[in-house]
Design a binder for these strands. Sequence first.
DNA 1: TTTGTTTGCCTAAGAATCTTATGTATATTT
DNA 2: AAATATACATAAGATTCTTAGGCAAACAAA
Lengths: 113, 113
Amino acid sequence: MIFSSELIKGTLKTIVLKLLRDHGKMYGYEITQRVKELTGEKIQLTEGALYPTLHALEQEGLLKTEVEYIGKRMRKYYSLSPVGTSKSKERISELTDFINTLTSLLDLKTRNA
Amino acid sequence: MIFSSELIKGTLKTIVLKLLRDHGKMYGYEITQRVKELTGEKIQLTEGALYPTLHALEQEGLLKTEVEYIGKRMRKYYSLSPVGTSKSKERISELTDFINTLTSLLDLKTRNA
DNA sequence: TTTGTTTGCCTAAGAATCTTATGTATATTT
DNA sequence: AAATATACATAAGATTCTTAGGCAAACAAA
């Protein structure tokens, strides 16, 4: 089972920010693979969605980039800027709150990490 | 604090289906008020988002409607069709699963209902 | 060695869906 | 009488995703 992209939409940016928070720096392809791996294939980010999002976050000043070459192939690493670090905290905290609200609204049982 | 609409986007339909599941039948304005009330003002559905969504769900055959008049003012009640009842189960279950996945991905602590 | 798969970046047309603004009207409260 | 709340709805524009495609290097398999 793969989650409908509808659900992922609103959370994509926060997911990216959280991963960068934990991993320091990552490149686009790595992010898609990591998310797939961490979610047991349930969340599959498409490149068509991910790259524009990364560019947008960079444009907003939350991410900075550094390009590296592996042989002749480019890798563009993204990492949090100072602003991005603080914004990512806000985002994650908002998402936590949202999940709690949803849970109570929907009367769902969730696993407790 | 009001949740960014970005977060709500993917869950709007499921929220509507869940409310109708619990309440039998509801009209649009009532849904906006109920959601606001149940979430402590944190989720505020706009009519511009809600009405098209209701119409879409009706079009998909998940909802049926009955119009009632309170004096001269119209109320359009929505309720789950048989298909809607079964789809709402799926949706809610998917959302539960998604929330659990997100929680583990983001390493969040959630309240346990 | 050449074919297929994976890695790795990217953009663009079209689709979907929301925001914001507006329209219309009745009912209720101040 | 005026302001607010109730109640429906649509439309232009914005945002963001899907789908499809493009380019190319590295690696595995045949």
